[in-house]
Structures are given as structure tokens and as C-alpha cells.
Simulated scan of single mutants.
Amino acid sequence: MGITYDEARIRNLKFKIVNALVNDSRVSLDESFNNEKLVKIFYFKQRDIEQFKTNLFNEDGQILDEVKRSIEEIVQMNMRVREEVDYGEECEKLKVGYLALKNHYDSFESNQEFIEQQLDNLSTVASNLHYYILPIYDERFICNSDILPEDDLSDYYYHFHSIEDLYRCIFETDKSLSWKSTGGDLNLGYKLNFKVYTSRWGHYDNYTFSREHYGWKIGAFGKDAKCDKNGEVLKEVGKQYVTEHTGLHYFLNHDSVQYPRNGVEYALEMLWNDADSKEMEVEELQSKLSDVAAWISEVEKATHQYQPSWCNYY
């Protein structure tokens, strides 16, 4: 069945708590944590609090017993490897092995025996380093691995890209995720412009977007619509929806805009995820959102411009 985003995110939230415990002796698993503390101490995102708090904490803000036991086991593993593992030596092994594998792939060679030999060695090294540095990984990468790292470290790290993630955590920190990052909270709630050309009116109309913890809030025609990451209607539990009257598609269709709907939905979801997973500045988010609007506008123009003169369908 693989690993869902939610499972991967909950895993990362546990590791945020573990990192806080390891790095600050004042933090105790026995205390109660309100939302402010979840952000200040564990660097939870607003989305984490909205969606995953109940997976980790009870109504009083205390860590659930099962979660507490799991976190304590990880902390104990961290203490053990720090006593038993020579960090510098293992890092050097990782560096040598990773670069050997990378050079092998970059040269387009396919010596399966060599690859397996390197992965055999590296998966052991990675297992030693894993509990030493307590890494946070992109949820999408964990999902692609089809296994949570702690379920079977040897299996998880028996892949080049998993080894590469660990390598970056140690040697290329600018390309890795910090446990202290609140990622996309940096760009939540800002009103952004989304200017789309409409042949129907012969000018650009400006829709508004803001990235929210649930997806996008899109504004047009004097009203706002809660939308999913891909710009379509947000389906909330217990509510009824008339999908053709909500979301970006409804707004564009209202103005008879012709555009690549599937591609735009994919782009909006990809952009939302990208803005959520790293500390993307609002200016960069606006720029990339404008790229999508420009794409729609150019397709709209071309659709009308290049249709046969005798057709006049659009």
C-alpha cells in the first residue's frame, strides 16, 4: 500500500520533538503543549497543528502514551549510537561510498555487482548515522520509498536517493531540511495577484490567490472560494458541494477562458507543495504564480488567434 503523506509527516513531527529533546534539556515529555509551544519549541507549521495535533497530543496538550514511548525509543537510540559510533569515521565512509556511486551513475555505467556492493556497505553506514543526526526528510521522498525509515533502516537506505538525502543532511545542509524550519508558514495568508487575459473582454482580469494551510483561497467576482492545492473546490467533511460552481475552473469558465486545465491543476499543486516544504519568500511565490497565469493567458490568446478564420468556435 505504500506510505501516505500523512504518515510521513507524522513521522517528521515525531523527529522534530526528538530533536527538541536532544538539543534542549529543559524540554520534558511530561509537560502540556499549547499551540504556541508547538510552534516555538517544536517548530510545527500551522497546517501541522490543524491536521496532525490530535495524532500526537491529547486534548490537554500532553503527548499520547504510544507516541511518547516511540519518541523515548528514538531518544535512547540516539544516546546509544553517540556512545558507540565514531561519527567522523562513519561520515567519511558515507562520503566516499556516495561519491563512488554518484560517479558510477553519472558515467552511465551499469555494473550491478558494484552498485549492490556499495549499497550493502552504505546501508550499514547510513543506519549508524541515521539515529546520530535524526534527519528530517521531504515527505514526498519518504512516500516514494514506500517505507518509513525507522521501520527498516537497511531497506530504506538500500537506495541511491535515500543515501543522497542523508549525504546532503551532513555535507550539503543548504539542500536539506532543518528540523527548525516551519517551511511554508513564511508565505501563508498573503494576497497575491493572478492576472489572466480574457478574449471575451479583451483585457486582463485580476484574480487573487492566497496560500492557506488547506490549499488556496481564490478570489474573483467579489467572492472568495476555499480551494484545494490544485485550485479545485476544497471538499470539507460534512459539507455539500456543487463542484461546477466553485474553484478556479469555475472562475475561468465564467469568462470563457480556454486553458490546459490538467496542466494548470498540476502546476498549482506542485507550487503549493514546493512553497510548503521550504522557506519560500512571498516574492518567489508571487513570481511562480504569475508564471501559471501567464501560461493560461498565452494559451487563451493562441486559441483565439490560431483557430481557422472560417471556424469562429471560440
Rank of each mutant, 00 (worst) to 15 (best):
112 Q>D: 15
244 E>H: 15
215 G>S: 00
246 T>Q: 14
92 E>V: 01
115 I>D: 07
300 E>T: 06
286 Q>T: 03
70 S>G: 07
245 H>V: 03
181 S>T: 11
115 I>G: 05
280 M>F: 00
119 L>N: 11
166 L>S: 03
296 I>Q: 03
14 K>W: 05
153 L>Y: 08
111 N>L: 07
128 N>Y: 05
228 D>A: 15
108 F>V: 02
314 Y>M: 13
21 L>P: 03
169 C>H: 15
116 E>W: 10
212 E>Q: 15
130 H>S: 05
311 C>K: 15
4 T>A: 14
210 S>Y: 08
38 L>K: 03
23 N>S: 15
150 E>S: 10
312 N>K: 09
253 N>I: 01
146 D>K: 10
174 D>N: 05
77 M>P: 00
22 V>C: 05
257 V>W: 06
200 R>S: 14
228 D>L: 12
285 L>C: 04
103 N>K: 06
112 Q>E: 15
230 N>Q: 10
88 G>R: 14
115 I>Y: 02
207 Y>D: 01
284 E>Y: 02
105 Y>L: 09
14 K>D: 08
301 K>Y: 07
228 D>F: 09
171 F>V: 14
19 N>C: 06
276 D>A: 10
21 L>M: 14
86 D>T: 07
199 S>K: 11
242 V>F: 14
256 S>W: 11
182 T>M: 13
11 R>D: 03
145 S>C: 14
185 D>C: 00
188 L>N: 02
178 S>C: 06
290 S>I: 05
270 M>H: 13
135 P>V: 06
306 Y>M: 13
287 S>N: 12
15 F>G: 03
264 V>Q: 07
300 E>R: 07
311 C>Y: 15
279 E>S: 07
185 D>M: 00
34 N>Q: 02
208 T>G: 09
125 V>S: 05
246 T>R: 13
278 K>R: 14
308 P>E: 11
215 G>L: 04
24 D>K: 10
123 S>R: 09
100 A>S: 12
56 L>C: 03
5 Y>G: 04
239 K>D: 12
143 C>D: 04
141 F>Q: 13
305 Q>S: 05
106 D>Q: 00
4 T>N: 12
274 D>M: 12
124 T>K: 15
185 D>F: 03
25 S>E: 13
291 D>C: 10
250 Y>H: 07
100 A>C: 08
174 D>H: 02
154 S>H: 10
164 E>G: 01
26 R>G: 12
286 Q>L: 06
135 P>S: 08
11 R>Q: 04
173 T>Y: 06
191 K>N: 11
298 E>D: 09
83 E>P: 00
153 L>F: 12
220 A>T: 03
95 K>I: 02
115 I>A: 08
206 N>Y: 07
33 F>I: 01
300 E>K: 09
2 G>V: 12
140 R>D: 08
308 P>K: 10
133 I>T: 06
54 T>N: 15
62 Q>T: 04
213 H>M: 13
144 N>P: 02
143 C>R: 05
15 F>K: 08
297 S>Q: 04
222 G>F: 01
221 F>L: 15
168 R>E: 11
243 T>S: 12
122 L>P: 00
258 Q>E: 13
197 Y>N: 04
127 S>K: 00
35 N>F: 04
295 W>D: 00
110 S>P: 02
276 D>T: 08
159 H>D: 12
